[in-house]
């Protein structure tokens, strides 16, 4: 109990330090409000933005892009992982290919995605889906290839059909590994979708942030950063609680 209190005291102290530095910079520190706006101004902007319907529709667009990108990455990743993990030979062929895809700095492809899919939602969805795909496929492949042979032996011994083996034995056996890939993939989808919105787009929270900062609406930009942090926290909460498995396997 005492320990918990100390932990929270330290955290609050950290926050005080952060906000204290901010207050000092804009007050006695004499940093120009064009660079760092006053806290009170940012707070006013924040309230203004939260009550505006435009902000909500921007958040909605970002959320839709994120969900669509994630859904594509999820389905494609698990299916590819499952198909490639079915035999040791296929796994051996596919694993390095997917690992290389994972290593490619996808950020650099972004201008090409704009070229191929335009500045609208499609390019964000495609870009997010691609970056979420690799970790999901990689971990699914590993999960399916490393299924403990004992489980499969039991399935055969007790007369499971092919699809029964797939759905009732292989899936649950590989699930913990698959889910860890899904969480990484979801986080990557979020990171890339927001980045893509910031780099080139016409709508969405990331676009709003880019617009505000490029037109030097500094207070609005800071307020949007706060809103994005809240958005991210909600998504992260969802990711962390997404299908929490209650068991572990050796896979």
């Amino acid at each position: 109990m005492k320990h918990k209190i100390a932990v929270w005291c330290l955290r609050i102290l950290g926050l005080i330090g952060l906000f204290g530095a901010w207050a000092y910079a804009t007050g006695p520190g004499g940093v120009s409000p064009i660079l760092v706006p006053k806290m009170s101004v940012v707070w006013e902007q924040f309230k203004l933005l939260v009550t505006s319907s435009h902000t909500w529709s921007s958040a909605g667009i970002t959320a839709v892009e994120l969900l669509a990108a994630f859904a594509i990455a999820l389905v494609a990743g698990v299916v590819v992982g499952f198909i490639c993990g079915r035999t040791p030979f296929r796994a051996e062929v596919a694993e390095p290919l997917i690992a290389w895809g994972y290593l490619v700095p996808l950020v650099l492809f972004y201008p090409l995605f704009i070229l191929w899919f335009g500045v609208g939602m499609q390019s964000k969805i495609a870009y997010g889906a691609l970056s979420g795909f690799f970790p999901i496929a990689f971990n699914s492949l590993r999960g399916f290839r490393a299924i403990d042979q004992r489980y499969l032996k039991v399935a055969r011994a007790f007369g499971a059909s092919g699809s029964q083996t797939d759905w009732q034995v292989k899936m649950p056996a590989a699930l913990p590994m698959v889910l860890s890939g899904v969480r990484i993939g979801a986080a990557l989808c979020m990171i890339t979708v927001i980045l893509a919105e910031m780099l080139a787009s016409t709508r969405g929270l990331g676009y709003e942030l880019a617009r505000a900062s490029q037109t030097l609406q500094v207070a609005e930009a800071f307020a949007l950063i706060l809103i994005l942090l809240v958005f991210v926290a909600i998504v992260q909460y969802a990711i962390n609680h997404f299908g929490k498995e209650r068991y572990r396997t050796d896979a």
Binding site: A6, L10, G14, M190, T192, M198, G206, L228, V232, Q236
Partner: peptide, 21 residues
Amino acid sequence: EAFLGPIAFVLSTPKSIFLPI
């Protein structure tokens, strides 16, 4: 215990949102 949690949170946050700063 006090700061690893917050650091892990920022880790999986799109850090690009801080670019304007």
